[in-house]
C-alpha cells in the first residue's frame, strides 16, 4: 500500500492544465486539450455519456479512444463517461467502416439509444469508408447506416481531434 501511495504522490496530477491565454495562441496540444475541457464543461455541465461502438474498424481508432481516458487527457475528469450500454448513452461514438456483419447490430444499438441522441463517426473509415470503402463485406461510412451528427477524420484521429469532434457534435 505504501509504495503505491508514494507513487501516486510522486506522479502528482499530470492532467494537462490550461496555460496562460498568451500561450494559447501557439495552439500546442496541451493548451488545446485544456480549452476543449473548458468548453465541454461549460456546455454540458459535467454530464455526457458515450457508448463506443466498433462497427468493424482495424482497432487503431479504439487505441486512441482509450487514450482519452489516460491521465493526461482525463476525459472522465470533465464529466464525460464511457458507458456499457447504449441505453445509458447520450452519444454513440462509432468507428468504421461499418461491416455488413455489424450493420444490423449497429442499427439495434442506435435504436436502443434514448432520444435525443448524438452520433459521432470516427476515423477516415467511419467518415467515408476509408481504405476499405464499400464492398461485398462493408457498408463504408457510418452515415450509410445511421444518421451522423459529427465526423472526426484521421487514421486514426488523435485524442485531441476526438475531443474536438465530440464537442462539435454537442454544439450542433
Amino acid at each position: 500500500m505504501i509504495p503505491m501511495l508514494r507513487r501516486i504522490l510522486r506522479t502528482g496530477i499530470v492532467t494537462e492544465k490550461r496555460p496562460e491565454p498568451a500561450k494559447l495562441a501557439d495552439s500546442t496540444e496541451p493548451a488545446e486539450v485544456a480549452r476543449l475541457h473548458e468548453d465541454i464543461l461549460h456546455i454540458l455541465g459535467r454530464a455526457l455519456t458515450i457508448r463506443q461502438v466498433d462497427a468493424g474498424s482495424c482497432n487503431g481508432c479504439e487505441l486512441e479512444i482509450h487514450a482519452l481516458n489516460n491521465p493526461y487527457t482525463n476525459l472522465e475528469g470533465c464529466g464525460i463517461k464511457f458507458v456499457a450500454s447504449p441505453r445509458h448513452a447520450d452519444m454513440l461514438l462509432v468507428t468504421g467502416p461499418v461491416t455488413k456483419n455489424m450493420e444490423n447490430a449497429l442499427k439495434v444499438a442506435y435504436d436502443c439509444t434514448p432520444d435525443p441522441k448524438l452520433v459521432v463517426a470516427v476515423g477516415d473509415c467511419g467518415c467515408n469508408g476509408g481504405i476499405f470503402g464499400k464492398s461485398y463485406a462493408s457498408c463504408g461510412a457510418v452515415e450509410n447506416v445511421i444518421p451522423v451528427d459529427a465526423r472526426v477524420p484521421g487514421c486514426p484521429p488523435t485524442p485531441v481531434a476526438l475531443l474536438r469532434g465530440i464537442l462539435a457534435a454537442v454544439r450542433r
Binding site: 466498433d54 468493424g56 474498424s57 461491416t99 455489424m102 464492398s135 463485406a137
Partner: peptide
C-alpha cells in the same frame, strides 16, 4: 466471429 470482416483479402 466475423463481425469485423471487411473484405481485406478481396481488396
Amino acid at each position: 466471429f466475423g463481425y469485423a470482416h471487411k473484405g481485406i483479402e478481396k481488396l
